[in-house]
């Protein structure tokens, strides 16, 4: 049953604002796992072939939501509901440059820092490849492309960690992250926490992460995300 109110744009472009304090966050209702973000990122930064700074993880592939009408197009709504299932859901996983980044907390050499402008950076020259950050990150963002080569191979560690930079250099010149700009369906939202949560509201999409994860990503701003299992 539908009444399409035409000429009333619901979904905005994914990149709403950039620069200081910008965050990146997925709308899983819009992600169709087309791989555009993965290739845009690799192309833009010439990322080693076997590293994924962004990757799509699909849950419950091939399965409908339960109940279908309620949750197939609102996967986030099914979380925490007894007997409910979100059905197949594609989740873009990358570094979200968390407010309370666990990777920063555990890094033994302080190679990982949360900067004032909000970006979480790894300083290559300090990284020893211990991979603690990978253990700590709930999202699997840290990548270790060098783990099969050279010294890393000898010592059995990860080599230098690499991850999504939220295209900091692009944002410096007023451009959006390559993944978000090229996303087929505007599923990657870039803006401050308020803009992101407003956009998700407009779209009727709940966040797909639970309360703990949202606190990690957004810190105090997690409260913006109402009804999001926070």
């Amino acid at each position: 049953m539908a009444t399409n109110e035409t000429s009333k744009q619901v979904m905005s472009q994914g990149v709403m604002s950039t620069g200081d304090g910008a965050r990146i966050f997925p709308d899983v209702e819009a992600c169709i796992d087309c791989g555009g973000c993965v290739v845009a990122c690799k192309r833009t930064w010439d990322v080693p072939r076997d590293e994924q700074r962004i990757s799509i993880s699909t849950m419950l592939e091939g399965q409908r939501a339960e109940p279908m009408e309620r949750y197939n197009t609102n996967s986030g709504g099914a979380l925490g509901q007894d007997g409910a299932s979100p059905g197949e859901t594609a989740i873009p996983m990358q570094c979200y440059h968390c407010e309370e980044a666990p990777c920063v907390s555990v890094c033994p050499t302080d190679s990982l820092i949360k900067k004032d402008d909000g970006f979480v950076d790894v300083r290559d020259n300090l990284c020893v490849g211990c991979q603690y950050c990978l253990s700590a990150c709930p999202f699997g963002a840290p990548q270790f492309p060098g783990s099969d080569e050279g010294a890393a191979r000898l010592f059995g560690n990860g080599g230098t960690m690499d991850k999504c930079t939220m295209c900091e250099e692009r944002q410096d010149v007023g451009k959006g992250p390559a993944c978000a700009e090229e996303c087929a369906t505007d599923a990657l939202l870039v803006g401050d926490a308020q803009e992101i949560s407003n956009e998700l509201d407009r779209r009727g999409s709940d966040s797909f992460f639970n309360g703990v994860a949202m606190e990690i990503i957004f810190g105090e701003d997690a409260d913006e995300f109402e009804g999001s299992n926070a």
């Binding site: 539908a2 399409n4 109110e5 744009q9 979904m11 169709i32 087309c34 087929a184 369906t185 779209r203």
Partner: peptide, 21 residues
């Protein structure tokens, strides 16, 4: 979603406006 991914941009917008897929 696989054969014409960018068409989904418009299809999902239609859905958000109240259409059923």
């Amino acid at each position: 979603a696989e054969a014409h991914p960018i068409a989904m941009q418009h299809i999902l917008e239609g859905q958000k406006r109240g259409g059923d897929i």
